[in-house]
Amino acid sequence: MDFELDGEQQAILDSVDVLLSLRAGPERAIALAAKGELDHDLARALREAGFLSLATEVGPLEAALLVERAARAAAVLDVGARALVAPALLREVPDVPVALVHADGRGPVRHAAFAGVLLVADGAVARLVRVEPGSLAPVRSGYGDPLGFVPEALRRSGEALGAGSGERLLRWWRLALALELSGASTAALATTVAYLKQRRQFGRAIGSFQAVQHRLARCAIRTEASRWLALEAAHHGAPGERVAVAAAHAADTAAQVFRETHQLSGAIGFTREHDLHVFSMRLQSLRLELGGSTAHARAITAERWAEGAP
C-alpha cells in the first residue's frame, strides 16, 4: 500500500494543475455560467494534452485524479463523463461532450444541451444515443453546470451496449460523482479557510477562534476521507460496494461542507464577488444526482447484505 504518487503520476498531475490554473478557475466558471456555456476551449486543451484519454492510455486511477482536480478548479465541463465513465463502456472515447442519463429520470440532465453522446442507464443495460450537439433544449441553471432536457423518447432509444452494461455505467457514474463532489468540497473548504484567515473580528482573524477551528477540522476530516475513498475505488476498478460507499460519503460530506462553509463565511459567501458559491452551488446539485446519499446507501445495503452477498 502506498498513498504517495509515483513520478509519472505526479508529473501528470502537475501538468494537469498547470493547465487548469491557466484555463479554468472560479472566475471563468462565473463567466461561463452567466452565458450558460460549456467550456469548449478547456475541452480542446485537455484533449490536445492527451488528458481526456488517460483512462485508456494510463489507467482509471490517473483519470480519476484528473476528474477530482478539474472539480477543484471548477471546470465547467463533462470531464467525469468523458474521461472516466465513457472509457469504461465504449471502445472509442467520443470527441464530443458526453451526458449521463437515467432512463427513469424526469429532471434536467447535466451538460445535455451540448452533448453529442448520451449514455443512458436503463435497468440491466446501458444504451448509447448519438445526438446532434446543441439539439437538446437548454435548461437554465443556478448550479454552475449547464443543463439540458432529454425527451422521454430519447431515453428509451439507442444502441444497447451488452449484458451488464447498465450496472457498469452506474458504477462508474457513481465514482465520477464521488470524485467531483470530493474535489468541489475540498475547494469550498479551502476558499472558506483562506477567507477566515484574513477576515478579522474582535482584533483577531476569525479562523483563529477555537470553535471555528473545530468545525473546520470536522469538515477537513470528512473531505480527506472522501477523496481517499474515491481514489481507492478507482484503483480497484470501481467495484459496486466501494463506489457506493465513496459516493454516499461524498454526498453527506457535501451537505455538511455546504452548511458549515456558508455559516462561517456569512452572507458574502452567496455573493458573486466571492468564490465560495461557485463550489457550494455545485455541491448542492451533485449531492442529489443519482438519488443522493439515500440511494447510494441503499446500493451499499444491496451489495453488502443482499442474499448471497459475501
Binding site: 470528512r222 476521507a225 481517499w228 475513498l229 460507499v245 453527506d252 445495503t301 447484505w305
Partner: peptide, 23 residues
C-alpha cells in the same frame, strides 16, 4: 438497513484514513 449502511460508511471512511495515515 439504512442506519446500518450509514455506520458502514463511517467505518469504511475511518479505515481509509487509517491506511493513508499509516502510509
Amino acid at each position: 438497513a439504512h442506519p446500518l449502511a450509514d455506520v458502514y460508511i463511517g467505518v469504511a471512511s475511518a479505515e481509509t484514513l487509517t491506511h493513508a495515515a499509516a502510509c
